[in-house]
């Protein structure tokens, strides 16, 4: 009973701000108010009017997809390497690999900017992809390592013993067994990249704008509920695609 109450309060605290923002998207006033006054969809139409937001959303999605692909590949291979290396520097190396998680992103952004200026990557899409990959890869490493820790190494040896080469062993045995970790890492990486602002601000070229950047500049100059409308759409998309994905791959383990 008490447990239920605590849960209810937690859910309320998590859900309340989201619901409030969603409600303000429908207000007829020129700024977000709660409770909303009247009902209109004009702020939603506004989002698509100039194309600024849709272009930014496209860039963000493309960036997040590229960063996620890189993070999943590198992160999985790194985790496999780390879990197998029983030598001395193992813990030092894994601390190093995971360190970007602990790094203030503002420092990372500045460092990358300085570095990119030297090698001529500043303001490029590739530079952004690399920056986002650096931020997201450690999370994939972490999650894959977690799923590797409950992995019986004898299973891979059994596969080799049964005649499978390295390739077949990896794709038919290892990967299916660590898949929950890889997918969770991928979902995490995507959200992180899609949401990233600080490092992106340092690295983006003047004309380049990701969705978080676009929203950020917009709220500096305007208080229109357009922003609530964007937030509402993001929440709905996430609820329709992200949450079911997450539930399917994370909670329902292979039988």
């Amino acid at each position: 009973m008490i447990l239920f109450l605590v849960n209810a309060i937690i859910v309320l605290f998590l859900a309340a701000p989201i619901l409030v923002v969603m409600a303000t998207a429908f207000t007829t006033t020129g700024y977000p108010v709660f409770p909303p006054e009247g009902f209109t969809l004009k702020w939603f139409a506004r989002v698509f009017e100039t194309g600024e937001f849709t272009d930014a959303a496209q860039l963000s999605a493309l960036l997040a997809i590229c960063a996620t692909a890189i993070a999943c590949t590198l992160g999985t291979l790194t985790a496999l390497g780390l879990s197998r290396w029983k030598g001395r520097g193992q813990s030092a190396l894994s601390a190093f690999v995971l360190s970007p998680i602990l790094f203030p992103t503002i420092v990372l952004g500045l460092a990358l900017l300085v570095f990119y200026s030297r090698i001529g990557l500043q303001g490029s899409f590739l530079g952004l992809v690399i920056g986002h990959s650096i931020i997201t890869t450690p999370f994939v490493v972490r999650l894959v390592m977690a799923s590797l820790s409950e992995f019986d190494p004898a299973v891979e040896e059994a596969a080799r013993n049964l005649g499978a080469g390295w390739w077949r062993t990896f794709f038919q045995v290892t990967l299916p067994l660590i898949r929950p970790g890889v997918l969770a890492g991928g979902v995490f990486a995507f959200i992180l990249s899609f949401d990233e602002l600080v490092v992106t601000l340092f690295l983006a070229a003047p004309g380049m704008s990701t969705l978080p950047m676009r929203i950020f500049t917009f709220v500096q100059y305007s208080s229109e509920p357009t922003i609530s409308a964007i937030a509402t759409m993001l929440i709905v998309v996430w609820a329709l695609i992200g949450v079911p994905l997450y539930a399917r791959f994370l909670s329902i383990r292979h039988k």
Partner: peptide
């Protein structure tokens, strides 16, 4: 190991779950 034609039975069974 994959080219040795030996069958190994492990203590942990090592079946593919």
């Amino acid at each position: 190991p994959n080219r040795r034609n030996m069958g190994m039975v492990f203590q942990s069974y090592a079946l593919f779950p």
